[in-house]
Design a protein around this nucleic acid. Structure first.
Lengths: 158, 158
DNA sequence: TTATAATAGTTTCAATTGTAACTATTGGCA
DNA sequence: TGCCAATAGTTACAATTGAAACTATTATAA
């Protein structure tokens, strides 16, 4: 057996490390929305997107958050049930539904949960210097682009 | 509403970006083990760990791969069923079960899947210069440590 | 020793998720 | 116009996952 095969270690494998870091961070940040407000990840993202871009349709939310169509549908249903999000029929295209945070509960939650999320992010970034943060930003950007390109190439190949 | 609240964008939010990147990379790398060999993520990790460290117990695998106890138990059960992994009773402690890749199927799969995984990682890292790779390594390390520390602090706090 | 606690690993059941199929509506175009 | 394809969103069902309870075995310590 080749030497590099025997020496392969999961701990140094980039996909594993990314997954581990993402999960660890998710666990931490979920205190801000899951434990505190009973939101799922998707629900939190829908809230965050609608807070910034009111009046989007589910499809637009899906595209903006790179989320699954069904996941968004389910999250929106729950948020409507919790009176955090309101639906409004689109005049010209009756397939679409415009979504907004409800004035009281929805925007109220947004105002409380976003600062907590930002605080967590800030604490995390505290471990890095200013220049390291810039490096991180660039590296994540490059890797994301590279990964997408790779996947597209693989898909076309298959 | 404060200005920074209104301007909060998910796309620039570190936990979201990490999750997105991890998922994109996962999707790509899963071609190497899921599409090609029908392995789940956990099964792939168990194989990878046992290839490097034969004779570990399930608990040791769990610790080494930061995986869930139940997930490992299930993955091992499937791998045994597929004759990729063999169990062997521990002499001194009969609660424990030593796990190894089977000589033919297990090690055979390991020899095929690991190079594919490494190839994917190499392609991904091709988008970065040598010094950028070193930066990435350091940044992931720092963030992982910081996230763990943060989570521990939060847990004690709660 | 023997009760109690701790550890290894599995099982169970509910909740979550993924895939595909579905309804409803609109767009494209012969 | 009328037909077919495409889009928006939901529903249904199977597969996966998570949390808690469970069995079996070993360690601790009164």
């Amino acid at each position: 057996m080749p030497q590099d095969l025997k020496q392969f270690e999961l701990e140094h494998f980039l996909p594993y490390r990314l997954s581990l870091l993402s999960n660890t961070v998710s666990e931490g940040i979920s205190l801000a929305y899951r434990t505190a407000y009973g939101l799922s990840v998707t629900e939190w993202r829908v809230i965050a997107i609608l807070g910034r871009f009111p009046g989007l349709t589910a499809s637009q939310i899906r595209a903006r958050g790179m989320m699954d169509k069904v996941a968004v549908s389910r999250a929106v249903a729950k948020l409507v049930e919790k009176e955090l999000v309101a639906r409004e029929d689109h005049e010209e295209d009756r397939r679409r539904v415009l979504l907004t945070l409800t004035k009281d509960k929805g925007r109220g939650l947004f105002r409380r949960v976003v600062p907590q999320a930002m605080r967590y992010e800030a604490k995390l970034l505290n471990s890095l210097s200013v220049s390291e943060r810039a490096q991180l930003d660039g590296l994540l950007e490059k890797l994301q682009t590279a990964a997408l390109t790779l996947n597209q190439a693989d898909q076309e190949h298959a």
